[in-house]
Amino acid sequence: MGKIKSLFSGRLTASMLSLWSILIVLFIITGLVDHYFFTIPSIGVTFQLAVPLGLLAAGQTICMLTGGIDLSIAMIATGAAFIVSIKSPSGLGMAIFYATLYCILIGAINGLAVGLLGMNPLIMTLGMNAVLIGVFTVGITTFLKGSSTMPDIIIKLSTASIIDPISWPLVLWILIGGFVLYLLKQTGLGRLIYAVGDNAKAARLAGIRVWKVQLTAYILCALLGGLAGLMIGGQSGAVAMSLADSLVLPSVAAVVIGGTSIMGGMGGYTGSIMGTLILTVLSYLLATLNSSEAVKQMIYGAIVLALAWTYSKLTEKS
C-alpha cells in the first residue's frame, strides 16, 4: 500500500527534480559544445567512465549516511587493484579472494575504530590512508613485488562494450547499484544505517548495537571501494600508487551534491548516482572546453560548492 512510495517525501522528489534539471542542462551544453558527445558510443564511454566514481560514491554514501566518511577509500581501491594484479598469476579466484580479504580487513579496522573506540572518522580514515600509502610504497619493492598489469578479464569487465551504449561496467554498476538501493530502502540494515546517522544515541536507546551497524557500513564501503579500484585498474590497464587518488574528493562531492547530509541520516544512493553523472558530464565538458587543468579545477570546485550550497538552502526552507 504505497509503502515504496512512502519512502520518498515530497521534498526529496523536488530536489531530485533539480538534480535532473542540472544534469540535463549540463548534458545539453556539453552536446552543443562537442557534437560528438551526442553519439551513442560517446554516451557509452561516458557511462563507462562514471562507473568507478559511482561505485566509490556508493560506499561513501553508506558511510556518510551513518554520519561517517571514508577518506581511506583511495588506498583501499588502489590496494585491491595492486593485490589482484600481483596475485593474478596464481589464479583470478585467489587474487579476488585476497583483495576481498584486504578490503574487509581495512573496512573492519576503520569500522571498529569509529564504532567501538569512538574515533573521529575523518582522522581515522585519513590516518589509515597514510598508513596504507606507506605499506604499499614499501610493499611494491618488497613483499608485493610482481606484475602490475590487470588480468584480461577485469580489463574486459571494466571496458568492453556489449551493445553501445551498454557496456560490461555499466551492467555491473546497474547490478551493484540496484543492490545498494535495495539494501538502503528495503532491508533492516538500511533502516539502521539511516537511524544511526540521524541519531546514534536514540538508536542505542532503541536497543540497536550501533557499532555493529558502523562496522558493517565501513566494510561495505571498503568492498565497494575495492571493486571500484579493480574497475579503475582495468580501465587504465595497469596499477600505480596514485590510481584512485583523484577520485576520492569527487566521491565525497558526488554524495554531497546528491543530497546526502555529511551529518548522516538523510539522503540516499539515487542522489549520489545523479551526483556521479553530473560530475562525470562536467569533467567531460571541462575536457572538451580545451581549458587548462587550472581552469578545470577551479570550475569543478566552484560548481561542487554551488551545488552543495543550493542543496542546503533547498532543504533548509521546508
Binding site: 528495503q186 532491508t187 533492516g188 540494515l189 533502516r191 539502521l192 537511524a195 538508536a203 532503541a206 536497543g207 540497536i208 555493529k212
Partner: peptide, 14 residues
C-alpha cells in the same frame, strides 16, 4: 518500526 530491526536476524528484507 526501529526497534523491530534489533538483532542481526532482522537486518535482511523488511
Amino acid at each position: 518500526a526501529l526497534t523491530r530491526m534489533r538483532g542481526l536476524r532482522n537486518w535482511g528484507q523488511i
